[in-house]
Design a protein around this nucleic acid. Structure first.
Lengths: 199, 199
DNA sequence: GGCTGTCCTGAGGTAGCCTCAGGATGTCAA
DNA sequence: TTGACATCCTGAGGCTACCTCAGGACAGCC
């Protein structure tokens, strides 16, 4: 329902493109310091633009978040593609998940948005999330086919684990980044006690 | 720093107690439907009280959340105490963690608040979080002493896993509750391949 | 019945969200 | 070069939520 979600597109006119890019740059910076709830009016003024201009290019906060994270997530999809022929499918999966966790937690609040986008079609990030889902699922299948990951694990469960790890990483404000260890424990939990399974 | 955080206390006067209780009841209901970001003005009006009265009893949102979740978390601490002599320490740990995940995710946004409270002393929930930390750590130590859980797992890591699971549960709006499976995979990851270790 | 400290009220200042009418200007064709 | 027009920009203003505070009400106690 709700038609298609609005996906921000780079404008045709030169001044429009300038502002679009400036807003995006300001948004990325603001999201990193203040999280996904950063003030849109601050972002607009940082970009040297009136609030109406921001809303013209990015009618919803979600569309701005989507545009600000688009490249990173596309990169993740490409990486899954590239890793799909890896000789060690468990290692490939592990590496990809590490990357994914990092991308999912570049700013506070992102994982929540992505997790919701995963199952909600009315969301700007839904398409990219789906692509990632497919990419991750492919790596998972390969690892399972090689007998390196327990066969009863579903892609949805993999993404639960992944976003859980990303959430933990997102929370860790100061030094303590629990996500590395989290991922490690997780992999120990899902991998079969094969060749190099248990540590 | 910042002195002691404000912990809401039940007032002395009868009318004050009435309002305090009404606000708490309205808050619990609102948090459950709207998450931790529920409108405080709505809560006040649902409680039949002016906004100033709400602020008198609960000067910050955090203090209201703390008061609304106090009993549940205290219950969790008590349960850890009770389980501490359990004949099967891994089972005790597993049961407690299941409970904890449920308590941590009774409404959207709670896990985040608790996770921050865990390490931030200037937070109303800090004391309770510490008590829980101790309780969980005790169960963990017992399971490790019995050789049922990998000895290199720290309590902090346990709480990362736990809050990750709670976050996943909190996110699952519709039917799909991934936290049960999450917890299972997690336990498989942290338990040693002992008597009943691997499934 | 009066005193006192606790408690309540709700107007109002602040901030952020988002819209929209009116004006400016880039682009392109002639 | 010029005119026309679609694209783009602006910022005032309505709305909601947060939070404070001065003034008033009243429960509890003597």
């Amino acid at each position: 329902m709700d038609g298609k979600p609005y996906i921000a597109q780079r404008p045709r006119r030169a001044d429009g493109r300038r502002n679009y890019d400036a807003i995006l740059a300001a948004a990325r910076k603001a999201f990193e310091t203040d999280g996904a709830e950063a003030s849109l009016e601050d972002i607009a003024s940082q970009a040297g633009v009136a609030i109406g201009t921001l809303y013209r290019h990015f009618p919803t906060r979600a569309s701005l978040v989507e545009a600000a994270t688009r490249d990173g997530l596309a990169d993740l999809v490409a990486r899954a593609e590239r890793l799909s022929g890896h000789p060690d499918p468990l290692e490939a999966l592990a590496e990809w998940m590490g990357q994914a966790v990092r991308h999912f937690s570049i700013f506070r609040g992102l994982v929540g948005i992505l997790a919701r986008s995963m199952y909600d079609e009315g969301t700007p990030s839904h398409a990219t999330c789906n692509a990632m889902h497919r990419g991750g699922a492919g790596l998972l299948r390969a690892a399972q086919a090689a007998g390196r990951v327990r066969p009863d694990l579903t892609p949805d469960e993999l993404f639960d684990l992944l976003s859980g790890a990303a959430w933990v990483r997102e929370q860790s404000t100061s030094g303590r980044d629990g996500s590395v260890r989290f991922l490690r424990l997780m992999l120990d939990g899902i991998s079969t006690p094969g060749p190099t399974g248990g540590e």
